[in-house]
Each structure stands twice: as structure tokens, then as C-alpha cells.
């Protein structure tokens, strides 16, 4: 079996299973710890609180100006690499076909040169954020191994993706195998590190919105 066959066969299957088991395990394990009911008299009805919680999931993406002016760099770079990453993942045609082999449907993609440019911006932003993490006093202090592992795991598919396109050193199918393996690594690490924010961001934003809404504060 070639590396590529292993990567997109056995490795992909097992990392998908680990991913699925891991995320469900982690979500349930955290969401089902002991609960205490808040018995205080809420300012607004339960239905309105649900609405406010749901709204916070959206509004938290657009901070008020007083916050925005202090976090502009993190905010813009954060948006930039997340969007860039998703564009590359979702609109590079080989990726679409990869996803189609799982979901069964496809959508129009973007020309390769465009993907290459967006991917380059994304990777550059990621590198800038890594440098910032290692130099900014606050980030230096609060960063953990998880942050660096997760950075690497998220950046590797981009790096190997470029290696496939640029055919660096090795055979195309070997590089493609490594690229797929880097995605498998992403799937495997996903449930165990901070990448899980992709899922937890929703309940967390919802909860903070609903908790403040209970007190009559729209956040």
C-alpha cells in the first residue's frame, strides 16, 4: 500500500473515528457535569433569554467600538486567517471533491491561482500570529503547549498543501499522502486541544448571552 493509499484510506478512516468519538466524548463530558438551577427572578422570560443567547452567538463576532479599538489587530488577523482557511478548505476543487466523497454533493470552486494567493495570506497571517504569541507579553504568559501544538496542527495542512502544489522534493503522491496525513493529524488532535472551540464557542456564547440577559443586560 502506498503512503497515499494509507493516508486517504486507513489513516483517514481511523482519524475520522477518533475525531467523532473524541468530540462527542468531550462535549458530553463537559456539558453533563452537575448542574445547579438558578432560582433568581429573571428580568425577562425564558423564551426571550433563549433569543438573547442565540443573538449573542452572532453579536459576539462584532465587538462594540470601545472593545474593538483595543483588539483590532487580533480581531482582523483572527478573521483573516479563519476566513482564508475556510476558503482554501471549501473552495479548492480537489478539496471539494474530497468533501464530496464524504457528503455526496459538491459546489463550485475557485481557480487555483486565487486559492494559492488566499492560502499564502492565511499562512502568512498564521506565522504573524505565532510570532505575536511568542513575543506579546500577555500572550507569552498565557500560552500553553496546547496553543503551539494546535498552531502546528492547523498550519501543517497549509504547509504540506503548498508542498504538493510546488512539488517540493518528493513525489507528488508522497506529498499528497503527507498532506492528507496532516489533515488526519488535525482530525486526531482536534478533540483533545483548543481546536474544540469550534464547537464550544456556540454553547459558551449562548450561555454568557443568556446569563446576562437574565439580568436584563444585552451583551
Amino acid at each position: 500500500m502506498s503512503l497515499l493509499d494509507f493516508a486517504r484510506g486507513t489513516a483517514l478512516q481511523w482519524s475520522l473515528y477518533i475525531f467523532v468519538v473524541g468530540i462527542i466524548w468531550r462535549i458530553l463530558g463537559a456539558a453533563l457535569v452537575m448542574r445547579r438551577k438558578d432560582m433568581s427572578q429573571a428580568r425577562i422570560s425564558g423564551a426571550e433569554r433563549v433569543k438573547e443567547g442565540a443573538m449573542t452567538i452572532l453579536t459576539r463576532s462584532v465587538p462594540p467600538e470601545t472593545f474593538e479599538k483595543r483588539i483590532r489587530f487580533s480581531h482582523i488577523t483572527g478573521y483573516l486567517w479563519h476566513i482564508g482557511y475556510f476558503v482554501v478548505v471549501l473552495f479548492f476543487i480537489p478539496h471539494i471533491l474530497f468533501i464530496k466523497s464524504f457528503l455526496g454533493f459538491e459546489w463550485p470552486g475557485l481557480p487555483n491561482p486565487m486559492i494559492l494567493v488566499i492560502g499564502a495570506i492565511t499562512l502568512a497571517t498564521l506565522v504573524a500570529l505565532l510570532v505575536r504569541r511568542m513575543t506579546h507579553p500577555v500572550l507569552k504568559l498565557i500560552s500553553t503547549a496546547d496553543d503551539y501544538i494546535s498552531w502546528l496542527v492547523a498550519a501543517l495542512p497549509l504547509i504540506t498543501g503548498y508542498m504538493v502544489v510546488a512539488r517540493v522534493g518528493l513525489h507528488y503522491e508522497t506529498l499528497l499522502g503527507l498532506h492528507v496525513l496532516s489533515f488526519c493529524l488535525l482530525l486526531i488532535w482536534f478533540p483533545f486541544g483548543k481546536l474544540m472551540h469550534v464547537f464550544f464557542i456556540f454553547p459558551s456564547r449562548y450561555n454568557v448571552g443568556a446569563i446576562f440577559a437574565r439580568r436584563g443586560v444585552r451583551v
Partner: peptide, 21 residues
């Protein structure tokens, strides 16, 4: 297509969901 993955069977995926839960 060359970039298609071999994702495994829906049954195995279902088993993973059950195991995770």
C-alpha cells in the same frame, strides 16, 4: 476523483457516534 477520501462505512461512523456518546 483522485482527491476523494475513503471515509469508511456509515455503519462504522455510526458506531463511532455511539461509542463517543
Amino acid at each position: 476523483p483522485l482527491s476523494a477520501g475513503r471515509w469508511g462505512t456509515p455503519a462504522a461512523l455510526g458506531a463511532a457516534v455511539v461509542a463517543g456518546a
